[in-house]
């Protein structure tokens, strides 16, 4: 039976998903072995059944990210953190370390929506619609929230890195990456 893969981008930029598409014609080979379940690649919004592998890009910056991640953990046998944002927070985690601030989140929002001279915001309000997911006090890595089985570092991991890792995982072998394939940036 084909293995089922689910993917999602949380507080990420979809760069890791673009990198997955970068495996080019090997996508066809991958599709011989796997079937995609919930993923932005096929626009499935919910899990249709339990999956073997969950690829998660991006860390958690709002409550919706946390719910999605917990759903992935519940529905995937093997959960993989893909990319620096999922592994250690990446670029969004910079807001945790806004200097000299007792309230980094507020300062971040005020700079983004009110104070900066680059902002055009006639209503002079920070977005607070009830439909928007609440931002967390800080950005969390995946491992802060759920148990992560593997991680693939990189910003983004190259197509070759993702392919080699997936191939090894599907074959049940330990992954061996060439020197150039292990990158943290």
């Amino acid at each position: 039976m084909k293995k089922r893969i689910a993917t999602v981008s949380l507080a990420g930029c979809f760069g890791c998903h673009m990198s997955l598409l970068d495996i080019d014609e090997r996508l066809l080979e991958l599709l011989q072995q796997v079937e995609f379940d919930r993923s932005p690649l096929n626009d499935l919004k919910r899990f249709t059944r339990r999956c073997d592998i969950g690829l998660v890009e991006g860390g958690c910056c709002n409550e919706e990210n946390v719910h999605t991640l917990q759903e992935f953990r519940r529905n995937c046998d093997v959960l993989i953190a893909v990319g620096q944002c999922a592994v250690m927070g990446g670029l969004p985690v910079m807001r945790n370390a806004i200097m000299h601030s007792d309230d980094p989140l507020r300062e971040c929002l005020e700079t983004a929506y009110l104070d900066s001279d680059k902002v055009y915001n006639p209503s002079n309000q920070i977005p607070n619609d009830a439909a928007l997911p609440l931002l967390l006090d800080k950005v969390y890595t995946l491992a802060d929230v759920v148990k992560v089985d593997y991680q693939i570092p990189g910003c983004p991991p190259s197509g070759d890195t993702l392919w080699n890792t997936l191939e090894a995982l599907l074959a049940g072998k330990p992954v061996e990456l060439a020197y150039e394939q292990l990158r943290y940036d």
Binding site: Q84, G90, L91, V93, M94, Q151, I152, C155, L177, D185
Partner: peptide, 26 residues
């Protein structure tokens, strides 16, 4: 945060991570 660091690519800590093959979940 390697993606935003000027030293990325010439950083000895990063290079040591590469040399030791650090990929596993922490």
């Amino acid at each position: 945060l390697c993606p935003i660091c000027e030293a990325s690519g010439r950083c000895e800590l990063q290079a040591m991570g590469y040399r030791l093959g650090i990929t596993q979940a922490t």
